[in-house]
Design a protein around this nucleic acid. Structure first.
Lengths: 130, 130
DNA sequence: TCTTGACCTTCCAGTTGCTGGAACCCCTAT
DNA sequence: ATAGGGGTTCCAGCAACTGGAAGGTCAAGA
């Protein structure tokens, strides 16, 4: 399979796939003409990567997960640890964003949003909290 | 005021403040020795920037907001629009993260997390959803 | 057979918002 | 005189790609 087909199947842009090769996440074969030739196992890895990335794992997480995936003797606890750490990060991010949303929606509600120059949003941005 | 004092007051690292000057968000004066000399208005802008950035506005948003801030004739609707757009983005991000969290916490719950190699997390990462 | 167009290749640069480090100047106190 | 704690510039790098240029390859149609 050429990169175009793989790209469609995996839902990743060709550029991204080449980048993943650059940083050593996959190592597709090469045809005599220089084109990359993807095996099923490469396709598998790319699907794995695509999914892990949409779940927000970093590339380094992915590298570790791929290694564990390849390792028949891995302990599921290793994978679970990575996933749990990642989960904790996500929880933190969500609550940060919720705080921001609350502040901001409060400001938007307070703002008349008309032609008058008086704007509570800008006013509140002038000062740091606490 | 020198950069160190401003840094403390605004809660921004000196590097960040220099960077903000580089990209034209502020234009402090210079002392004869070459040191930056910050006026109250610079300090104000930096506080504004710090607050807007903690609220997750992009630098380009900040640039626009600063311009509106400087403009006595601005319409509060302009500011409100930016804030509302930003709010919508945040809402989207939150719900994306919540989806991810749900998927991931489901996976973590399913995973035995012991020494056995069988791991539902890796298994589920193999395939794309839908 | 030639050409067109869609592929593919590499490499270099840019994105966002800083951050680290090197090499150097300045000012005050001892 | 020197030690320290400021300050300055510039260059490089982070994550995870993305865009573009310049060129090689291949299958199909006139």
């Amino acid at each position: 399979m050429n990169i175009g087909d793989v790209s469609k199947k995996a839902g990743l842009p060709p550029k991204t796939i080449r980048y993943y090769e650059d940083i050593g996440l996959i190592t597709p074969l090469r045809d005599p003409n220089g084109y990359r030739s993807f095996r099923d196992s490469d396709m598998h890895k790319l699907a794995f990567l695509g999914r892990a990335r949409t779940l927000g794992f970093t590339i380094e997480d992915c590298r570790t997960l791929l290694a564990l995936w390849d390792d028949q003797d891995r302990a599921s606890a290793d994978v679970r640890d990575i996933a749990k750490q990642h989960l904790a990060q996500i929880e933190r991010k969500i609550s940060d964003l919720q705080d921001i949303r609350d502040t901001l929606s409060h400001l938007v509600r307070e703002c008349a949003g008309d032609g008058r120059p008086d704007c509570p949003i800008l006013k509140s941005l002038e000062t740091f909290p606490e």
